[in-house]
Design a protein around this nucleic acid. Sequence first.
DNA 1: GCGCACATGACAACGGTTCTCATGTCGTTT
DNA 2: AAACGACATGAGAACCGTTGTCATGTGCGC
Lengths: 144, 144
Amino acid sequence: MREDQAAPPPADVELIGRRTPQRSTVLGALIGSAEFLSAQALHLRLLAAGEHVGLSTVYRTLTALAEAGRADVVRDPGGERLFRYRPSPQHRHYLLCRVCGTGLPVDSSLVGSWAAGISASSGFADVQHTVELTGTCPDCLREQ
Amino acid sequence: MREDQAAPPPADVELIGRRTPQRSTVLGALIGSAEFLSAQALHLRLLAAGEHVGLSTVYRTLTALAEAGRADVVRDPGGERLFRYRPSPQHRHYLLCRVCGTGLPVDSSLVGSWAAGISASSGFADVQHTVELTGTCPDCLREQ
DNA sequence: GCGCACATGACAACGGTTCTCATGTCGTTT
DNA sequence: AAACGACATGAGAACCGTTGTCATGTGCGC
Ligand SMILES: [Mn+2]
Ligand SMILES: [Mn+2]
Ligand SMILES: [Zn+2]
Ligand SMILES: [Zn+2]
């Protein structure tokens, strides 16, 4: 029923430095959302809930979480970066709904080995890959 | 020797509207470059060559070419969009050097069918994919 | 408790891109 | 050839996501 608990014990805050109320709040909001969120959307959400955390702090916390591997980052068509909490530290890819933002994790082992093969045959070093799938989810399809 | 001819007959200008000197110039510069270029880099290049084309026009022309399928667009890590002329109208993917910007086309048929499979099994409609590979090319590796 | 390295937040600055609008021009019609 | 209208151009401002600045606040090891 409630999709956001008051304050689900945010354990991995300390992965990114000192434990502060602001970081716990941001991490809590990120964990509480099933969808990818932009820094600004998350900030607005906090304001609406009466939680006053500076926008700079939201940006810094999300960026730090992403660098620590606790958040996935994706770029929306407009270039905005969207964040989503990642419970397990593994690398993942998502199929994102362009209408509602819902993200569905997809099995990307095939893409991973494809990229590894390209890396080996090209002579390039430190090859990284970005894979993003977008579409319209069944729910949003139904609602026209 | 010369990597940029004076003005290689730019045929597909008219794919994006009226044929103007500015559009021919922009398209010529795009065709003359083997690498992905940002709108601003291309603009600077034109200025250096004594060709005065407004930055707005460069943006408009590149965007129109991309929409017409005559240019590939890729996002660099900083969020900047990079353009490259696409002689054939097929969909392509590249392995980009993070140092010098060189782009190597890669065989992505595997990724295409993977994406198609995900599309079919997920129930999502209109699934599009973004695949970007980045690394350090052999030349840039050599130069330390 | 002290102290300081680290964190916060209001605000300004930044960089890429798009918008505005007055002026110019392509290309078609008489 | 001249005229006309729709479209294109360009200088500058506006926009928007993001990062920097810096004075103030605070977590936390001592
Ligand atoms: Mn992957
Ligand atoms: Mn493809
Ligand atoms: Zn949806
Ligand atoms: Zn290189």
